[in-house]
């Protein structure tokens, strides 16, 4: 043990088998390595100290020194928190939304929200997540009408979105979804990605997964520290933490590409899951309904308006640049791996 080493107790909002918990452990290890053991972060899984949805309270009050989760889990404290994660992100993907957070004014706005709800935390949104599936169903969704009468799980402002589509929606933490489907509390649910969904056991309770959706097209994970604890750290250590967050953010994306693509195959071969593309009319309806929902919240929550204006201003410029500059890679994919694709070797 290095001399004067600091220990911190973290908890994630994920069960230990979820790849998200692995990302949390990766962060702990990165900090430990970068500080040469001067700052040790021990990460416990969801429920070990407090329930997943109780993480913010626990970190804010100092029961935990920090946490690993997502911003939308605190949706009940202030609805605007859902804007880091739920929704179509005005055309931005999760990484672009992080660009807005760092360079487009998001960070200051997030601090403002946390101040209004009295949360004493220092928050680092990081780890941009890839587009999340529409979810796992007993029967595929062929039109928006199929949501009527469905008990469905999602989180954050997506709750409003799927409610508007006709479902009865309950938010549950990731680790409780499959058990809830198993005992009949839910008919259908979404969580996040091939690796997490497979590890949590979705394939045991459903054989149909619908891919592509706008409900959480730009979500990030969040690392949070108790404010007093964080501010008590020497400046050098704070800088290391900030660096470690950004390094882990990138590593998470690389790891996700590698692991999600493997688990996607395993889900098809071993677990016999059938994947379908969400029909375009459903996707289009999501965009329309999302705009109606945000309009409703504009009046009730002044921060909501401020954040959306900031996001739109950034997205307008960034997505135009992206759409114009970046070649659509579908052509290359078809060229090599499509039905008539040819490989040079």
């Amino acid at each position: 043990k290095a001399q004067g080493a600091i220990s911190m107790r973290f908890q994630s909002t994920w069960p230990s088998k979820d790849i998200f918990h692995e990302y949390a452990l990766d962060f702990g290890k990165k900090v430990n390595d970068m500080t040469g053991g001067d700052l040790k972060i021990e990460v416990l899984p969801a429920g070990a100290v407090v329930p997943a949805f109780g993480l913010l309270d626990a970190v804010s009050k100092g029961v935990l020194d920090g946490g690993h989760g997502v911003l939308v889990y605190h949706y009940g404290k202030n609805t605007a928190l859902a804007l880091w994660g739920s929704g179509p992100g005005y055309g931005m993907d999760a990484n672009m939304l992080l660009a807005w957070h760092k360079y487009g004014g998001g960070k200051a706005l997030l601090e403002k929200i946390y101040a209004t709800i009295g949360a004493d935390v220092v928050s680092f949104p990081y780890a941009p997540l890839y587009s999340q599936p529409l979810g796992w169903f007993k029967k595929p969704i062929q039109s928006v009408d199929d949501f009527k009468g469905l008990k469905y799980r999602t989180v954050g402002i997506s709750i409003d979105l799927f409610t508007a589509m006709g479902a009865a929606v309950n938010a549950l933490p990731g680790g409780e979804i499959v058990a809830a489907m198993d005992r009949g509390l839910l008919d259908a649910a979404e969580f996040n990605n091939a690796s997490s969904d497979r590890a949590l056991g979705f394939a045991d309770v459903s054989k149909i997964c619908m891919l592509q959706s706008f409900h959480q097209n730009s979500e990030q994970l969040e690392i949070s520290f108790n404010k007093t604890k964080f501010n008590g750290l020497p400046p050098k250590m704070k800088a290391i933490i900030e660096g470690a967050v950004e390094a882990c953010s990138q590593d998470m994306q690389w790891k996700a590409i590698d692991r999600n693509s493997q688990d996607y195959i395993t889900l098809q071969t071993q677990d016999k899951v059938r994947f379908f593309k969400t029909p375009d009319p459903v996707l289009k309806k999501q965009l329309e309904l999302y705009d109606e929902i945000t309009k409703k919240y504009l009046g009730t929550n002044p921060l909501f308006k401020e954040i959306i204006e900031s996001q739109i201003a950034f997205a307008k410029r960034a997505t135009r640049w992206e759409q114009d500059y970046i070649t659509n890679r579908r052509m290359a994919f078809d060229h090599y791996f499509g039905p008539n694709g040819k490989l040079p070797v």
């Binding site: 949805f53 889990y73 605190h74 949706y75 009940g76 404290k77 202030n78 209004t116 709800i117 009295g118 989180v155 954050g156 709750i159 409003d160 409610t163 929606v169 309950n170 938010a171 549950l172």
Partner: peptide, 11 residues
């Protein structure tokens, strides 16, 4: 103080 609402359902 923050008029906290359930995060489990819409509204």
């Amino acid at each position: 103080r923050i008029a906290e609402h359930s995060n489990v359902t819409s509204n």
